[in-house]
Amino acid sequence: MDAEQRRVHDQIVSGPRGRIQGPLRAALYNAELADRWQALGELLRYRTRLTRRQSELAILLTGRACQSPFEWYAHRQEAEKAGIESAVIDALLAREHPQGLDADDDAVVRFAAELNRFNSVSDATYAVALQRFDAQTLVELTALVGYYTMVAMTLNAHEIPLPAGVEPAFPLPQHQAVQDAAAAPAPQRPR
């Protein structure tokens, strides 16, 4: 690391994360990018109006929607620490809507699910979420989903490895795409 990379590294490990893992390993190639990335991530993860539980629900849902094994692995642990029940985590892993959520958690999950699936949120879902939260919280939730989409893409594209001995909960999307392409007939190209 050069001096600027070392400064950013030391700043990250002395903050709430306590270590460099995941996408910041890749972002650190550009010290300014890593510095701004970690600051935005710290804000969205630790200093919004969302509860830790609500944040982790949205992050898990986003990690699964983006098929990011590392993001799923890291935030499954955080979700468990935040008190999210195993049945809820298992439902998100299976891409099912969890049962038994309170109204606030349900609004977060529905909002994040639509945002991940459609890149937007229906008027009805937005209205329900706005009844549960204020506009600032919905902007923060949207930014959280967007941020963790960027995280997932970085983890996937650079194949940031899981810790030794940890099996992925699901394959990387490109690996599935390669398997699907191998099984399918070759597309006909225009001549």
Rank of each mutant, 00 (worst) to 15 (best):
D2E: 13
D2C: 12
E4C: 06
R7P: 06
V8H: 01
H9N: 13
D10M: 05
G15S: 15
G15R: 04
P16M: 05
P16T: 07
R17Q: 10
G18N: 04
R19E: 14
R19S: 12
R19T: 08
Q21R: 14
G22R: 00
A26P: 03
A26F: 14
A26K: 13
Y29D: 15
Y29S: 15
N30C: 13
A31Q: 09
A31V: 10
E32N: 13
A34W: 10
Q38K: 09
Q38Y: 12
A39V: 14
L40T: 13
E42R: 00
E42S: 15
L44Q: 06
R45T: 08
R45W: 08
T48G: 03
R49S: 07
T51Q: 01
T51D: 02
R53P: 03
S55M: 03
E56L: 05
E56F: 01
L57F: 03
A58T: 07
A58D: 05
G63Q: 04
G63P: 03
G63T: 10
R64V: 12
C66E: 02
C66H: 10
Q67A: 11
Q67K: 06
P69L: 09
P69G: 01
W72N: 00
R76Y: 07
Q77N: 04
E80S: 05
K81G: 04
G83S: 11
I84F: 05
S86N: 12
A87Q: 13
V88N: 07
V88C: 02
V88Y: 09
I89H: 03
D90N: 14
D90K: 10
L92M: 15
L92S: 07
L93F: 01
A94I: 02
E96M: 06
Q99G: 04
Q99A: 15
Q99P: 02
D105M: 08
D105T: 06
A107W: 07
V109G: 00
V109A: 05
R110W: 08
E114F: 03
E114S: 02
R117K: 14
R117T: 14
F118Q: 08
F118C: 05
F118T: 15
N119H: 14
N119F: 05
D123P: 02
A127T: 04
F133Q: 07
F133G: 08
A135H: 09
A135S: 10
Q136N: 12
Q136M: 10
T137I: 09
V139T: 11
T142W: 06
T142Y: 05
V145M: 00
Y147G: 08
Y147Q: 11
Y148I: 08
Y148W: 01
M150T: 13
M150V: 01
V151G: 07
V151S: 12
V151L: 09
A152P: 06
M153D: 02
M153R: 14
M153N: 10
T154Q: 03
E159T: 02
I160M: 01
P161D: 00
L162T: 00
L162W: 09
P163D: 01
P163M: 09
V166A: 03
E167N: 09
A169M: 11
A169W: 09
F170G: 11
P171E: 12
H175K: 11
A177T: 11
A177Y: 00
D180H: 13
A181F: 11
A181G: 10
A182R: 05
A182F: 00
P185A: 13
P185M: 07
A186Q: 03
A186F: 06
P187F: 06
P187W: 06
Q188C: 00
R189T: 09
R189M: 14
P190V: 02
P190I: 04
R191I: 09
